[in-house]
Amino acid sequence: MTTRPSSEGEGGEPGAALVVEGLGLKGPRGWAFREVSFRAGAGSLVALEGPSGSGRTCLLLALTGRMRTHEGHAEVGGLPLPRRMAAARRIAALGQVPGVSELDPSLTVAEHLRERALLQRRFDGSVRALLRRPGTRAAETRARIDEALAAAGLDPAALPKGERTSVRDLERLEALRLSIALALIGRPRLLGVDDTDLKLSDADRVAAWALLRSVADSGTTVLAVCSEAPADALRITTVAADPDTTGETAEPAPDGRTADTARTGRGTKTGADTATPGADAKTTAEDDTTEEGADDALAETGRA
Results as ranks from 00 to 15, higher is better:
residue 66 R to W: 04
residue 207 A to E: 15
residue 81 L to N: 11
residue 47 A to K: 05
residue 89 R to L: 06
residue 253 A to V: 01
residue 256 G to M: 08
residue 43 G to M: 10
residue 177 R to D: 08
residue 207 A to D: 15
residue 74 A to M: 14
residue 141 T to K: 06
residue 298 L to V: 08
residue 260 D to Y: 10
residue 161 K to C: 06
residue 216 A to R: 01
residue 269 K to L: 11
residue 281 A to V: 15
residue 213 R to E: 14
residue 96 Q to G: 09
residue 291 E to M: 12
residue 101 S to A: 15
residue 99 G to K: 03
residue 28 P to F: 13
residue 134 P to F: 09
residue 60 L to S: 05
residue 281 A to H: 10
residue 55 G to V: 07
residue 290 T to Y: 04
residue 241 A to P: 13
residue 74 A to N: 12
residue 79 L to A: 08
residue 276 T to G: 06
residue 189 R to Q: 13
residue 219 G to K: 05
residue 91 I to K: 01
residue 30 G to D: 12
residue 119 L to H: 12
residue 74 A to L: 11
residue 5 P to D: 00
residue 192 G to M: 02
residue 9 G to E: 02
residue 81 L to V: 10
residue 262 A to V: 14
residue 112 H to P: 12
residue 141 T to H: 02
residue 198 L to K: 13
residue 35 E to Y: 07
residue 93 A to K: 13
residue 76 V to A: 07
residue 77 G to L: 02
residue 85 M to D: 05
residue 282 K to R: 14
residue 254 P to Y: 10
residue 83 R to I: 04
residue 67 M to A: 13
residue 8 E to V: 14
residue 59 L to T: 11
residue 107 L to V: 06
residue 144 R to T: 05
residue 98 P to E: 09
residue 206 V to I: 08
residue 247 G to Q: 11
residue 7 S to T: 15
residue 151 A to E: 04
residue 116 R to V: 14
residue 99 G to Q: 04
residue 115 E to Y: 15
residue 86 A to I: 07
residue 280 D to G: 10
residue 46 V to G: 09
residue 272 A to S: 11
residue 273 D to L: 08
residue 203 A to T: 14
residue 75 E to G: 04
residue 188 P to C: 12
residue 32 A to N: 13
residue 157 A to T: 12
residue 223 L to F: 11
residue 40 A to T: 11
residue 210 A to L: 07
residue 275 A to G: 05
residue 134 P to I: 06
residue 11 G to M: 03
residue 226 C to M: 12
residue 277 P to L: 04
residue 202 D to N: 01
residue 225 V to W: 01
residue 183 A to I: 00
residue 25 L to G: 07
residue 121 R to C: 01
residue 98 P to V: 02
residue 275 A to H: 10
residue 221 T to C: 00
residue 189 R to N: 07
residue 239 V to L: 14
residue 271 G to W: 06
residue 131 L to C: 06
residue 9 G to D: 15
residue 290 T to P: 04
